[in-house]
Design a protein around this nucleic acid. Structure first.
Lengths: 224, 224
DNA sequence: TGCTCATTGTGTACGGAGTATACATGAGAC
DNA sequence: GTCTCATGTATACTCCGTACACAATGAGCA
């Protein structure tokens, strides 16, 4: 068989292998646990070997974003009905982002929305247009859904990190945390926050996220 | 006048002065431009002097988040009508986040939602409850609005960084960028993306963001 | 089979990051 | 005047990303 380029099958390393190990490190030790030296050690190789496959560390981080996004749409699904299809798509995207919370800070930075992001965007646009929505509604709908998902996941991740130290959930626990963190502030300054704390803390659940997505979808269609 | 604690009025430095200079650096040179040495130089002081006022660099970054959020609600406003009030509040929050795009990656990380964040949350909850919404609607409404804002700003910031290299805007420009970045991918793979590009690129405007917020608010109230 | 040479991994080293630790200084309180 | 403690300094250590020169390897052609 003739191959015009050897396409790097010769060495032990490859972009794929490096990215997989990098993602494993980020998952287990966080983004700041990912250093070139640590990564090289995991790959059983010299630090500089990595630079034969990536221009620099930023290049690796960009690859991680793409990897996680690709994972979110790894397996096709043919859910019936465009509304349900969209809901499932965003639920999956949320799931894979939550599975790799370390990469989330990367999404907000750098202008690296690559091929995978474009692919999923394209399919979403297709579904929305197919539903008979006008161009403006389609554009705004996509923007609402993507923004909401990104923000919701960011908030969920932050909330989960906060739960590390103290298991929250009960109202007393919430009050105690508030009081503890802002001893100087009067707890009476936040009556609504305290009253609604149980409901607010429920927004780290998949079901609630799904309801949010559905509400946005419903708001796109003119009074059904 | 008697003061029980001197509260650090003696030295040249203070938490406030340090945070102000830190924010100025982040604004002008980005988050990665903020180093302790650079900051100390700006303050005309030794690097280690900063550590008399902050436990570590993370402590400084947490302070920056609070500073920006505080700025977003610096001046009160008494817009008539709860819906308009909420819209103005989120428009302001977006504006101050966009004014300091460098701190945005910080919002996604760390569990540091401080006093300022709680204050604005409390007021929003009050407005929503005052509008006669049920507890569930209030909680979901807050979550939708905050998540949307966070995500929308993140996307705006990323889009603006992308515009640095090439002024986008026209449809031809968009196509050229797409083709350039994914030479191997067939442009025909993204028909919807190309068709809707002009509308999609409009989502870096304040007006469009406001429309998104209004649409969410409208979806909260049962068929008016 | 053996020469050639691009590709891939190594070794060493440099500048800059955050920050621990010990020390200097200077402004109130007595 | 002297004590004391908060504030800023000096020095140095570890770890980071990565530039640069070199060594090994294996595919392609003679």
């Amino acid at each position: 068989m003739y191959t015009p380029y050897t396409m790097s099958t010769r060495g032990r390393l490859s972009r794929e292998r490096i990215l997989e190990d990098a993602l494993r490190i980020v998952d287990s030790e966080g983004l700041q646990g990912l250093t070139i030296r640590r990564l090289a050690q995991e790959l059983d190789v010299t630090p500089m070997a990595v630079y034969r496959h990536f221009k620099n560390k930023t290049d690796i981080l960009d690859g991680l974003i793409e990897l996680v996004i690709a994972e979110g749409q790894a397996t096709e699904h043919d859910t019936e009905g465009w509304q349900a299809w969209i809901e499932v798509t965003f639920l999956r995207m949320r799931a894979s982002l939550l599975q790799h919370p370390g990469v989330l800070p990367l999404l907000g930075s750098s202008a690296s929305y690559g091929l995978q992001s474009l692919r999923i965007t394209e399919r979403l646009l297709g579904k929305l247009r197919g539903a008979g929505l006008g161009a403006d509604a389609v554009a705004r709908g996509l923007h609402l859904l993507v923004s909401y998902t990104l923000g919701a996941v960011a908030i969920e991740v932050a909330a989960r990190e906060q739960q590390q130290s103290a298991e929250a959930g009960t109202q007393q626990e919430w009050q105690r945390q508030l009081r503890q963190r802002f001893e100087s502030a009067d707890i009476a300054e936040f009556p609504n926050l305290v009253a609604l704390a149980p409901k607010l803390s429920r927004f780290v659940e998949e079901a609630e996220f799904g309801l949010g997505v559905r509400q946005i979808i419903r708001s796109l269609t003119p009074e059904a």
